[in-house]
Structure formats: C-alpha cells, structure tokens
Design a protein around this nucleic acid. Structure first.
Length: 392
DNA sequence: AATAAAGTCAACCGCTTCAAG
DNA sequence: GCTTGAAGCGGTTGACTTTAT
C-alpha cells in the first residue's frame, strides 16, 4: 500500500487523505449519510468527493458523527457496566458498546486500556495480608524464586469465553475467621461466596480455560488475572484457617505487588469520600485486592439481578472493582501444561457436582449453593494444571 | 516558566467474517 | 465450493493535552 507520509495527508499522487478529520469533511460525510444512509462506505468517496477511504468514513461516522453519541467521561454506572461486561466477555469492545447506549467500542477500549495501565503501574499488593503474613511473605520473597516461566501479558490478555464448559477446578475463598472490624479489608476480597475462580476444561478439545465467576467482578478482570493472578496463581496458596484472617500466599515470585500493605493503606476512612481517596491510591482493583476499601466501594453492584447490599454508587466514579481482567483463553493450556505450581487446592466437598456455572449472567449456581468449606489443604510440592483432580 | 512524563483520544492497520455472485 | 468485496473488530500508533518536576 501507499506509504504514510505523515501529516495526515497522503502524497500528492494519492487520492486518499489520512489523519484527523476536518469540520468540512465531517459536514460532507454527515450530509452524505443523511442523503444515502449508512453503509456502502466505499461509495462515499466516489460519490461525495471526500478523499477518505470507506473504512475511515465508517469509523468517523460510527465514533463521532452518528446521532445519539454520548460524549464526556463515563458515569459510574457506565464504568460499572463496562467492568461487568468485560468480566463476562473480555475484550469484545463492540459487543460491550452495544450494551452501553451512546458509547463506542473505541471509547470503551481506550478507557479500559487506560485503566488497566494505571492499575498495573500502581503495583500495589494484590492479596490481602495480615502483618504476620506480610512478614512471612517478605521472608519467602528473599528466597530464590522457583524455576518457572511466567506467561507474558500479551499472550494472556486477549481472552474470551468461547465455551460453555464444565468446571474442573474452582477456588473459593476461605471463610473469615475474624472477619469483622479489623479484617474488613480482607473481607473485601472474598466477601461472599460468589467470588470464585474456576478452571474449566474446554469440552471442544481446546484445553483449559481459567475463568471466573461472572458474578465476581473483582476476580474477573483482565488486569488481575493476567497480571496479578497469573503471576501469582501458580504460587498462591491459602493460608490455613488458623491464620489470622486468610490470605493467598505468594511464594517467591517476582511480582508487581511488591509494595507492602501498610496498615494505613488497609484501612478505610469510612467517610465515603472514595474519589478523593481513590486518587491518592492506586485504584479500586488494588484497593479491592488489598482490601482497603470501604463497603461502599466493594459493593459496586455488578450482579445484575443478584442483590447487592449497597445500591448506591454515587461518587465512585471510575472506582470499580475488577477492572482489567479478561477470562483467559484456552490457549493458555499449553502454558499451563508445563507450569509447575504449588497451588493448594481448597477442599470444598462440593455438594452438587452437576451444576454448570454460567459465566454470562453473573448468577452461577455455584455461588448460591457452594458452601464455603473451612478446610484448605495445601498440596505439598508441585503439580501440573492438567493433573489437578477434578474437585468440582 | 520550561521541560519531561504521563494520560487521553482519534485514527489507522491488519485480520476476520459475511454475503453476494 | 470458491472468489471477491464490504463491513466489522481489536490492536496499535501517534498527536495532542495535562500533570508533575
């Protein structure tokens, strides 16, 4: 194709212009669409004199000129919707846009990527640690890391739910031992049983899909899964219930979550001034994972039908849980195949093995019926994902 | 005030999907 | 069933703006 000579214009031999649109071009396109309707974009150039390719016209119309486009910052409600949708469908921007009136896929995509970037950069601890656990962790971190390979972010980010699989493995939070008051922040991570991580087998032969309960917005975000969780997952373990509170324990993994959780960071001010607080912190994902959110922040309602204890999201602009994470693609299978890990598997003693979690409506059976078993039995040594027993 | 760094956003590119012939 | 063109989608880039130093 023709080289882009920059400056938004093709060279003089070219008939097509590139770069930002002018008001005059917009006007021409608007008039053309008024007259001929949408579609047949390649004809626009031929019939209107616009020196723009059909693609460019379509994009300009779709993203900027068509009626009923909403401009400006996303509202908290929109943000919540984006997060929920992303937790369910991954980077399906167009599909997401179709669910959010007045917003374009490009807008949503830009917003999401920005948020993900911001959260990654914040690099706060992902998992809630108690002070003693933090010390333990620090000790462990100084040990040589195990010989493992960490999947690259890019190989993992683009994920989607392609299947309607049956879960092989699921993680559910351990119960809170002393969950009130001083452990409120820990509660934020797994405040209830709908926050679960599941490993699916692709019945179509594609391998494993690590996914998350759609009702679990915090877990179901690409940032967390692809960055934090994937970095951590093979290494994490649940502390025993006898530990103070609970936690997932990172074991000697180079991590984005190297910063310590200070008591201050783990506490909430209880004033409801989330926005101000949020700006001084890294963002809600980390907040959630670290657990330094107030109840209002944590309970952003993603459930779409699942009752929420707090329906008010006012003032929580752009502070929503679960941002940045997509369900993992089953291509991860090959990675996991050779991924030694020491993941303690919770012993749920699941009662009903017949249920198939639904990842699209946020109301899996599991979240209703899955009793949280207090027993978490770390598995000594390593195992492969594929070798994990089906415990669901 | 100047500069660098970071953030935002519009647009392009390449690929895939779909429908018509 | 194959080819072709249009449309759509997601990733990426780069210009512009804002914020920090």
């Amino acid at each position: 194709m023709e080289p882009d000579v920059g400056g938004g214009l093709r060279n003089s031999n070219s008939t097509l212009k590139k770069g930002p649109w002018t008001a005059g071009e917009d006007l021409v396109l608007i008039e053309y669409v008024k007259k001929h309707g949408e579609g047949n974009w390649n004809a626009v150039q031929r019939n209107s004199g616009l020196l723009r390719c059909g693609k460019s016209c379509r994009l300009r119309w779709a993203n900027h000129l068509r009626p009923n486009l909403k401009k400006g910052a996303f509202s908290p409600e929109e943000v919540g919707l984006i997060v929920e949708l992303h937790s369910q469908m991954g980077n399906k921007w167009a599909r997401m846009a179709s669910q959010i009136p007045g917003r374009t896929d490009n807008e949503i995509k830009n917003y999401w990527n920005t948020r993900v970037k911001r959260r990654l950069k914040a690099g706060l601890p992902i998992y809630p640690f108690e002070h003693g656990q933090q010390q333990q962790l620090e000790e462990q971190r100084h040990k040589p890391p195990p010989q493992t390979t960490t999947p690259s972010l890019s190989s993992l980010v683009a994920a989607s739910h392609r299947h309607n699989p049956s879960p092989l493995l699921a993680f559910a939070p351990p119960p809170m031992i002393n969950s009130a008051a001083n452990n409120h922040h820990a509660n934020s991570l797994f405040a209830n049983s709908r926050r679960q991580l599941k490993l699916y087998h692709d019945n179509n032969g594609g391998g494993l899909t690590l996914s998350l309960d759609a009702s679990n917005p915090m877990m179901a975000s690409s940032t967390f899964l692809n960055q934090g969780l994937l970095n951590q997952l093979p290494m994490i373990g649940y502390n025993s219930p006898s530990s103070v509170g609970y936690g997932m324990e990172a074991v000697g993994l180079p991590s984005i979550q190297s910063a310590a959780v200070t008591p201050a960071a783990s506490s909430s001010n209880g004033t409801g001034e989330f926005e101000a607080a949020g700006r001084s912190r890294s963002g809600l994902l980390e907040d959630l994972l670290v657990g330094n959110l107030t109840e209002e922040e944590t309970d952003f309602d993603f459930s779409h039908g699942v009752s929420s204890s707090n329906d008010s999201n006012e003032g929580v602009e752009a502070k929503v849980p679960g941002e940045g994470m997509a369900p993992m693609d089953d291509e991860l299978m090959s990675l996991l195949d050779n991924f030694p890990l020491s993941v303690p598997i919770p012993n749920w003693n699941g009662e009903d093995g017949s249920e198939s979690p639904i990842l699209t409506n946020g109301t899996s059976n599991m979240m209703h019926s899955q009793p949280i078993n207090s027993e978490y039995n770390p598995i000594a040594g390593s195992c492969l994902w594929n070798n994990m027993p089906s415990i669901y």
